[in-house]
Design a protein around this nucleic acid. Structure first.
Lengths: 358, 358
DNA sequence: CGATGCCATGCAACCGGTTGCATGTCAACT
DNA sequence: AGTTGACATGCAACCGGTTGCATGGCATCG
């Protein structure tokens, strides 16, 4: 690392944890953030334009109440002075923040960025700002983030929430919440029903002659994982093939690679993984053990985030994460308008995308 | 799509664009967002605890000013009522928002998520919330987002900003700004110096006997692109190899694949691409034309976001996006503390990572 | 020409915390 | 016992917009 960088980081570390800058019950002594330099306020614009403060306010929020030339004059003065409305003041008096929050387990997991993007674009269309949180797959952390965000957002979107049901219900009582890939009755939710795709995958593998199939699972608290596993078991039972389940804690390339050793010791000749990352790890693991894919071992991923990136291209189950992100925002707005669509449950079904690993 | 989803989206569309909910100069008539249900305020806690409002405030922000048992009593009352401090009110009176904003060209471009995550984790440590923006590679949009965010953040991080220099300087005058991968004098910046890696790549390719090398460029307004191209030209000149440059507008798999047709018509036997996505597109394009990689054509990517995902694994130039994200936050905090580190310029050098496409 | 009413604007209270200053209490010290 | 001062708490102004109500001007109508 460059010396400057080191120095700065060291300085930051040394001082950084003096105390939080903000947050519920946080003392702010000794942090010494410089207060924002004096900004232009509505009063200064009023004075410059020779009108009352309220007229300036109206010029921006309800211009039809003022004479057009007055609006013009005020806006000109505002522009000249570089006036920007103070968000907090406005939020305080209107009770509206203009913010939404979105919390995901891991921003860097390729499943989420497209979803985040879609949600953000949708929010942006409605002129909301998006606060993004990263729970790091940790319920306690997720809970903390919700606490941080509720104080400045109209509502929250929790994607693949790892929170206990009870906590979600608690939070939902304070602020509108929409869930993605988590099924809690009474809370509006958008579910990507990978179960349908998983069932297709099992059928597909059975058809190719596989008699024992492994399901390599994901996070225990994940609704998606539960639903995928259940679908796999059900389909297997119906088709008379054996299904075994292997755990792979946090979904990642490494987790998949590590589980391969166990996988090789089983009867399974094919695996369905919780997600594409895990599947890819298994692919590499198998190849490292000189197993040909799909000749010796077939693999199906989930969420289809890698598509043709792998060699051979990975068979996977389509995900509709972008639609989910967008719908979650729509749903949240609906919820904000009328507190009535309480129990929406939108299900997006999925398809098996056959490529060359199966 | 499911009927429910359709219906909801239709409803959202129909109503959605009545007008923005918030924002500078946005009328809020007719939107009809329900005001947040009545929340517990400091006054209610004060009454419940039998103290003045100011004491409640102090119990949370400077408890050492109060007798311990009073603090206890107040906190108990607050907890019982479910009091949560109002973020806006606090921000209004202190002038501190506790928010940072980060704007990137494209959240879904795999280069950014790790950087976003690192920045977010760093901000979280300092108890800041992060507002995320997606400029969609569009300067006008980026400008608009800055405008939306300044009103509620202490400072902004612009990653790979596409804004004209002038605009950046303007914005920096209102709010502290830190840049990532954009070099504007007077604005603190963190630069991932891919030039060093690009030079290594050219040398590496020259050594393998390539006499003509193509540089497939990225966005014209990108600092990274300019610096990579310059480094490639300089290294080529020094080593006596010919360098040709081909444009590929927005970095993506498709752009890379599309440029292949042109590439094949040139003398080049190797290419360095603006990023890994483009490189991957070129790989596929070449394979579609029955060119072997690296036998017939060598390819080097940049940013190393795909690593061993491709077949054969892509030679690339390491990026240090996570460090960059983290450093940007440190730098911004530094800037907030003392308005003095005005002209920091942190450079992170990079390395060629040789895999199997070269 | 005076009454009527609409329209444009101003006034002042309010949103919910924070904070400088004033006040009151009590212990310690002369 | 009286003075001093530290400490705990209350009071009220303030942060910067928003908004219900009051006011004054002007055009319209009878």
């Amino acid at each position: 690392m460059q010396p400057v960088a080191c120095q700065l980081l060291a300085a930051a570390r040394a001082r950084g944890h003096i105390g939080p800058v903000f947050g519920a019950g946080a003392p702010r002594d000794g942090v010494g953030l410089a207060r924002q330099r004096h900004t232009v306020t509505i009063s200064q614009v009023a004075e410059a334009a020779g009108v009352a403060r309220s007229s300036v306010s109206r010029a921006f929020t309800r211009p039809h109440l003022l004479r057009p030339d007055t609006v013009e004059r005020i806006k000109a003065a505002a522009a000249r002075l570089g006036y920007v409305p103070n968000h907090s003041a406005r939020a305080l008096s209107t009770g509206l923040y203009g913010n939404l929050a979105m919390i995901v387990p891991d921003v860097a997991n390729p499943f989420f960025p497209p979803m985040i993007r879609a949600a953000q674009d949708a929010a942006d269309d409605l002129d909301f700002c998006v606060l993004l949180g990263n729970s790091n797959e940790d319920p306690a952390n997720e809970d903390r983030l919700v606490g941080k965000f509720v104080a400045q957002t109209e509502g929250l979107i929790l994607a693949s929430s790892r929170l206990p049901r009870k906590r979600i219900l608690d939070h939902a009582q304070r602020r509108p919440i929409v869930l993605i890939n988590r099924d809690v009755e009474g809370i509006p939710r958008v579910l990507i029903d990978s179960a349908s795709g998983v069932a297709q995958a099992v059928a597909h593998l059975a058809e190719r002659g596989h008699r024992t199939i492994a399901y390599v699972s994901g996070p225990a608290s994940s609704w998606s994982d539960k639903s995928r596993r259940a679908a796999a078991e059900k389909a297997a039972a119906r088709l008379g093939v054996t299904l075994i389940t292997l755990p792979a804690r946090i979904p990642s390339f490494e987790a998949g690679r590590d589980v391969t050793d166990v996988l090789i010791g089983t009867e399974a000749s094919a695996a369905i993984a919780f997600d594409d990352l895990t599947a890819h790890g298994i692919m590499e693991g198998m190849m490292a053990h000189d197993r040909a894919i799909p000749g010796d071992f077939a693999i199906v991923g989930c969420d289809d985030v890698l598509a043709n990136l792998t060699r051979p291209p990975l068979t996977s189950i389509s995900s509709r994460s972008q639609e989910a992100g967008q719908l979650a925002v729509s749903l949240l707005c609906e919820l904000l308008r009328s507190r009535s669509v309480k129990d929406a449950r939108i299900v997006l079904d999925t398809q098996l995308v056959v490529r060359q690993t199966s």
